[in-house]
Nucleic acid binder design. Structure first.
Lengths: 340, 340
DNA sequence: TTGTATGCGTTATCAC
DNA sequence: GTGATAACGCATACAA
C-alpha cells in the first residue's frame, strides 16, 4: 500500500476549448456535429479533445436534459438462474443505444427493495425494470415518477405493465410434443404447488391431454420440490405404481435429471420405453445427461429484451398495461425422440 | 396502448423551498441537517419535502461534488456462473453505503468492452471492477482516470491490482483432504489445459501429493473438457487402466458428476471404494448427486466484496497493486467421506 | 438565522 | 461562424 500520486481530474470541455483556442460553446458545437462551425475549427477542436482524451460528462448533460440515460434493474434473485438471462436481454437492448443499467439485488427483502428504489430514484433513472424471483404476482411499486415494467414476476396491479413467460402455453406445448411422438400414458412430476409456475404448467399439460381425450396418469400431478432427489423419488413411485407409463413429464430440468437417474438405475431405456422431459432448458443440466434432455426454454433473454423495449416506449410516453404472456420454445433432444 | 397523461416531473429543492416559504439555500441546509437553521423552519421544510415526496437529485449533487457514487462493473461472462457471485458480493459491499453499480457485459468482445468502458467513463463512475470470464490474465485497461480492480481474471500488468482465487492452494487443499481420509491412489480428471485454472489446480494437487511422497495415478492429469460427458469417459478409462484407483479428483463439479455416473454404471460404491471430488461447489450440481459431492468453493462472493472494498480504498487514495490470491474453502460431503 | 450569489460541465439561445 | 450567457439542481461561502 502506498499513497497514490494525485489522480488527474477528467478533462472538461473548458480544457478542450482553451487548448483549441475557442469558446466552450464552439467546442461543444464542434464535438456534437452541429453545422454552424467552420471545418478548420472543428478539426482543431476534435484534435484538442483527442489530445487530452476528453470524454463528455454525461452527468452534466443529463442534468440539463432531464434524462440520465440510465435505467434501474431491480431484481430479487440474482443467484437464481432466471434473473440473469433477463438481465442480459435488457442489457443487450439498452447496450446498442446509450442507456446504461443500474443493477440492484433486493434479495427478496422488501426493506432492501425500498432502500434500493430510493437510491435509483435519487439517481434519476429514466425507468425501472422489476424482475421477480418467481412467476407469482408481487405487490406493485405503486405510483412512480418514472415508468416501470415488471418482468418474469408480474405486478398484482393490472394497471402496471408486466411481461411473463406463458407457462400454461409451455405446458401444452410439451404435452402436445409427447402426444405427437406417440406417448399417451403421461405422468407429471413437478415442484412445489405454491409456485404458480408449477400450477400453470400443470394446467397447460392437462388442457392438452384433455383435448386429446386423455388425462394425466394417476389422475393428477405429483407436486414435490424442485430437486433431483424429488425427481428420483417420484419417478420410482410412478414406475412402481404404473408400470405401463410411457412418459415422465417433469416440471423442471432438475427434476427430469432425477427421473433419468431413477430410470437408469432400473435399466429402463430412454426414450425407447419411457420418454422424459423437463422445463427451463438449463443448458448444463439438459445437455449433460444421457440422453440429452428435451426441455422448454422460456426465452428469458427475449423477455428481457422486450421489457427493455417496452420501457423505452413507456419513457417515450406510450403507456401500456396488463400482464402480457410471452411464448416459450420447445427444444427437442434425445430424451423424448431417439437420436438419429 | 394509449398516450400517457403528462408524467409529473420530479420535485426539486426549489419546489420544497417555495412550499415552505424559504430560500433554496435554507431548504438545503434544513434537509442536510446543517445546524444553522431554526428548528421551526427545519420542520416546516421537512414537512414540505415530505408532502411532495422530494428526493434529492444525486446527479446534480454528483456534478457538484465531482463524485457520482457509482462504480462500473465490467464483466465478460454474465451467463457463466462465476460473474454472478462476484457481482453479488460487490453489490453487497456497496449496497450498505450509498454506491450504486452500473453493470455492463462485454460478452468477451473487446470492441463491446471499449464501448462500454467509454459509456462508464462518460457517466463518471468513481471506479471500475473488471471481472474476467476465467482466471487467465487479460490485457490491462491501461491508464484510467479512475481506479480499477480486476477480479477473478487478473490483469497482465503487475501495476494493476488484481484479486483472484488461489487455485493452486485449492488443489493442495483438496488433495490433502483425500490423503487425510486415507486415499493414496488418486487420479486427476480435469478440463481444458488451456485454462490456467485447470493447470493451477493440477499444480496444487501435484505439490500436495509430492509432499506426501506420492504422485498422480498414471503419472499425470487427464485434460479434456469441462463437461459431464468428459467426466464419464475419463472415469471409465481410468477404472479400466487402474483398477486399484481409490479417488477421482475432478477439476470441476460437472466433471465429477460425470465420474459419479460412470462409477454408478459399474456398481462401484462411492465413497467406500472410490472417493470423488469436484471444484466450484456449484450447489445445484453438488447437492443433487448421490452421494452429494465434496467440492472446493472459491468464495467468489467474498472475492467480490473484497474487490469492492479495495476499490473504495483506491478511490480514497490508497494505491495498491499486484495479483493477490484469495483462499478457497473445502466443502466436505458424502462423496469422499461416508455419511454418518 | 436566513438569503444571495457562485459554480459544477454541458447545451441551447441568442447576440455579434 | 463564433462567443457570451442562461439554465439544469444542488451545496456552500459569504453577505445581510
Amino acid at each position: 500500500m502506498e499513497q497514490a500520486g494525485q489522480r488527474r481530474r477528467a478533462a472538461t470541455l473548458k480544457d478542450v476549448a482553451a487548448l483549441a483556442g475557442v469558446s466552450v460553446a464552439t467546442a461543444s458545437k464542434a464535438l456534437n456535429g452541429r453545422d454552424q462551425v467552420r471545418a478548420e475549427t472543428r478539426s482543431r477542436v476534435l484534435e484538442a479533445a483527442q489530445r487530452i482524451s476528453f470524454t463528455p460528462n454525461s452527468v452534466a448533460r443529463g442534468l440539463l436534459a432531464g434524462q440520465t440515460g440510465t435505467v434501474g434493474l431491480l431484481t430479487n434473485d440474482l443467484v437464481g438462474r432466471f434473473s440473469i438471462p433477463i438481465l442480459m436481454g435488457a442489457e443487450d437492448a439498452f447496450g446498442t443505444g446509450k442507456t446504461s443499467v443500474l443493477l440492484c439485488d433486493a434479495r427478496g427483502d422488501s426493506i432492501r427493495e425500498s432502500y434500493h428504489l430510493q437510491a435509483l430514484l435519487s439517481r434519476r433513472v429514466d425507468g425501472l425494470i422489476v424482475v421477480g424471483s418467481d412467476t407469482d404476482p408481487r405487490p406493485s411499486l405503486g405510483d412512480m415518477p418514472v415508468p416501470v415494467v415488471y418482468a418474469y414476476g408480474p405486478s398484482e396491479d393490472p394497471n402496471d405493465l408486466s411481461l411473463v413467460p406463458d407457462n400454461v402455453g409451455a405446458g401444452s406445448l410439451m404435452a402436445r410434443h409427447l402426444l405427437e411422438t406417440g406417448r399417451s400414458r403421461i405422468a407429471h412430476i413437478t415442484g412445489e404447488a405454491g409456485y404458480s409456475a408449477a400450477r400453470d404448467r400443470t394446467e397447460g399439460i392437462t388442457r392438452a391431454l384433455d383435448a386429446a381425450g386423455l388425462s394425466l396418469l394417476g389422475g393428477e400431478a405429483l407436486y414435490g420440490s424442485w430437486s433431483e432427489a424429488w425427481g428420483r423419488a417420484a419417478a420410482a413411485v410412478i414406475i412402481d405404481r404404473h408400470p405401463d407409463v410411457d412418459a415422465l413429464l417433469c416440471g423442471s430440468d432438475q427434476i427430469a435429471r432425477g427421473a433419468l437417474d431413477a430410470l437408469r438405475d432400473r435399466g429402463i431405456p430412454v426414450p425407447e420405453k419411457i420418454a422424459v422431459a423437463g422445463f427451463d432448458n438449463w443448458e448444463v443440466l439438459a445437455t449433460g445427461s444421457r440422453p440429452q434432455l428435451t426441455s422448454i426454454d422460456m426465452d428469458l433473454e427475449v423477455l428481457g429484451r422486450t421489457a427493455a423495449q417496452r420501457l423505452f416506449a413507456a419513457i417515450d410516453g406510450q403507456h401500456d398495461s396488463g400482464t402480457q404472456k410471452l411464448p416459450c420454445r420447445l427444444v427437442v433432444r434425445g430424451s423424448t425422440v431417439p437420436d438419429p
